[in-house]
């Protein structure tokens, strides 16, 4: 609890009554958000085949899912779609974020608003239009799902980048072009090193959102190797066992594992760069 204390200077800014009200509302919000997560953990470990009955803790439901080929494919499909769609959305937004440094202000404002329009169009309507369009143009359902997922991630990646545009110095980009660098090399060697932090945070956010995408998967994908969200939807009203909880926990653990691996990888790269720099300095 001591971690969640307010900065000493803020005591004077907020006053006792405002501070207490904020604390109460924040605790209520956190409880509201975290209660289902806590219950999913308990349900996955202590749940029984009987509805809402808890029993002896065991890992039976995890073993049950991990021994099922279809579920294993679903985990793999969910993670690979999330990785690739988040990457596609971030690449598109990185190209856009670079180009607006050389474009007119109207182009910047209009393009930004049009990207945000996507998230505001009801996703049910968009998914229905995709289902119709994929049928008319004979586009495979999995391709349509991938494109739709990327489309929905575009505004999220944009919001992440937009908040961090101050990381990129426009003068440096323009200096690069004036000094004769092509836009391709300027993007790779001047823009990306400055923008990698917001790019990584946008990627993480997009990955998490994509992993949870359910509307397109429910409407577009029928059979075969489907993401976890579609498989969970198919269990609604059919299965009252703790399978959904176990699936959610396995997916969350897989994401945490990937996150950990990425963090270790980033640390190794940073360490090797630092040591090679030190080596060069000694030489």
């Amino acid at each position: 609890m001591r971690r969640f204390r307010i900065e000493p200077s803020a005591y004077a800014f907020l006053g006792t009554s405002v501070r207490r009200t904020l604390l109460l509302a924040s605790m209520l919000s956190l409880l509201w958000i975290l209660l289902p997560c806590a219950y999913l953990c308990i349900w996955a470990i202590c749940g029984t085949a009987e509805r809402d009955q808890l029993g002896v803790p065991s890992l039976t439901w995890f073993a049950d899912l991990l021994s099922d080929q279809d579920w294993l494919w679903s985990f793999l499909v969910s993670i690979s779609y999330a990785l690739s769609c988040a990457a596609a959305a971030c690449v598109l937004i990185a190209l856009f974020a670079y180009s607006i440094h050389f474009a007119s202000r109207w182009f910047e404002a209009a393009s930004g608003a049009s990207i945000l329009l996507v998230i505001l169009s009801p996703v049910v309507s968009l998914a229905l239009s995709y289902k119709y369009f994929a049928g008319v143009c004979s586009i495979p359902a999995h391709w349509a799902y991938g494109v739709g997922n990327t489309l929905m991630l575009l505004p999220i990646a944009y919001a992440g980048f937009e908040a961090a545009q101050s990381h990129v110095a426009r003068e440096r980009l323009q200096a690069g072009v004036i000094l004769g660098a092509s836009h391709g090399s300027n993007f790779l060697y001047v823009f990306l090193p400055q923008a990698w932090r917001p790019l990584v945070s946008s990627y993480i956010l997009c990955f998490l959102v994509s992993l949870d995408e359910s509307v397109f998967s429910i409407m577009l994908l029928d059979t075969g190797r489907v993401p976890v969200t579609k498989r969970l939807w198919d269990l609604v009203g059919v299965d009252s066992t703790p399978r959904p909880a176990a699936a959610a926990i396995i997916l969350a653990l897989a994401v945490l594992l990937l996150w950990g691996l990425a963090a270790v990888g980033a640390r190794v790269i940073r360490h090797s760069r630092r040591s090679s720099r030190r080596k060069h300095a000694l030489l």
């Binding site: 289902p36 997560c37 999913l40 992993l211 909880a245």
Partner: peptide
Amino acid sequence: LFVGFIARNFA
């Protein structure tokens, strides 16, 4: 956000 929206509905 890690545990998924549909699973939270079940919970």
